[in-house]
Amino acid sequence: MERIDVKGLSCPQPAFDTKKMLDKLGKGELEVLTDSGTARDNIVRLAKKNGWEAEIAEENGDILIKLKK
């Protein structure tokens, strides 16, 4: 499964990097690791808009977003 780490990056990089990855994958699964509530909100909104399902989990105090299509 593909995974990207966008921890600590300023807006809009977390969402933008995720979008690039989603576009590249087309469908499948992607995990995105972030430490920011703003990035989480942006990524989930973006993914849902593009038809991906989003699930939030925690990993070592960070936010793990699991995306599926």
């Binding site: 807006c11 809009p12 969402a15 979008k19 703003t38 909100d41 942006n42 909104r45 973006l46």
Partner: peptide, 19 residues
């Protein structure tokens, strides 16, 4: 809400996101 005026313009241009 993560309100941001610059982000508003940026997201429309970069990701066509109106939020």
């Amino acid at each position: 809400s993560r309100f941001c005026t610059m982000g508003a313009v940026r997201d429309v241009i970069l990701m066509k996101d109106m939020h």
